[in-house]
Amino acid sequence: MSATRPPAARRATSRMGTPNPFGKAPKTRTVMAPEGLALISRIPPRSERLAAFLLDFFLILAADFALLTIPFYIGDFSSSLQWTIVLFLTFIVNNAYFIYFELSWQGRTPGKKLLKLRVVNRHGGELSPFSVVVRNLTRQMELLTPTLLWSDGPDNLLVNVALPIVWFFGITLLPFWNRDGLRAGDLLGGTLVISSPRAELLPDLSAPSGDRLESARRFSSRQLSIYGNFELQVLEEILRKPVSDIPRATLWTVARKIAVKIDYPLDPELTAEGLRLFLTDFYAALRAFLEEGRLYGRDKKDQNSPPASGAA
C-alpha cells in the first residue's frame, strides 16, 4: 500500500517531522502523489465527519420534505400516480445526492465543504468515479440494514435481533474502530476522507526591511551552534504572534535567556521594539546557519543534539 502510516515515533511530531511544541499533533497519513512525493494529509476527527454527514442528511431530509409537501399545495394529491412519482423522486434524491456532489465538487458535498473535508483515493492517484459510487451505495447499507432487519419484528432471533446488533457495532460504527476513520464504504471504494483547510503564506521573518540590512546584528558560529531546529521554530512561533500579544516582559525573558546562553552582551535598557529586533536578527542568523548545516547533511534537531556544523 502506498499510503503508509507514520511510524509510532513520528506520531507525536508535527507535520514537518519536527517536534510540535504547541498542543496535540493532528493525526496524519501520507498519500503518495504520482510525482513520487509523499503528501501529508490530516485525518479529521470523527466529530467533523459526523457533523458533515448530519448536515448533508439534513439537506436531504429538507429536499424530501419539500418534495412530499409542496404537491399538496399546488394541486390534487389524492392520485396514486402523483404519490408514486413523488416517492420515486425522493428515492433519486436520497441515492444520488452524495454521488452527484462528490463527483462534481471534487470529492466534497455541501456538508464536507463547510467542514473542509474531502474524499481522496487512499492509494494515491486519481479518485475514480466508481469509487465515489461504491462508497455512497454502501452508505445506505451501513446505516439502514440494521433498522430494516430490526423492523421486520423479532420473528427470528438470529436475523432480526442478533444480526442488527452485530451489524450496528461492527459495520455502522466501523469508523470508530480504526485509526483513519474508514467507513465500510471507504474500505470497499478504496477512499479516505481527509481534512484540507487552507494555509496562508505568511511573510518571511528572516527578510528584514531595507534599513535593517546594514545594522543587522552578526553572530559567531560558536553562538549559533548552541540551539537546534526545535528552538528555532519555538522562536518563530513567538515572533509570529501579533506585536500587541507579547508584552516587553515576555520578550525580555526570552531574549535574556538566549543572550545568557550564547554569551551575548544584551542591553537591558532595550525597548520592546529593540528586543524584537534582536530576536529577529538572531532568528534570521540561526535559521541561515542551521539551514546551511542541513544542506550539508548536518541536522541539529534541538539544543541537546550533537552540533550541526563542523564550525562548532
Binding site: A199, L202, L205, E236
Partner: peptide, 14 residues
Amino acid sequence: LDRRLLAYLENLCF
C-alpha cells in the same frame, strides 16, 4: 526551517 512556509507548501501541494 521556516515552519509556516513548510506548512503553506504542504497545504498548497495537497
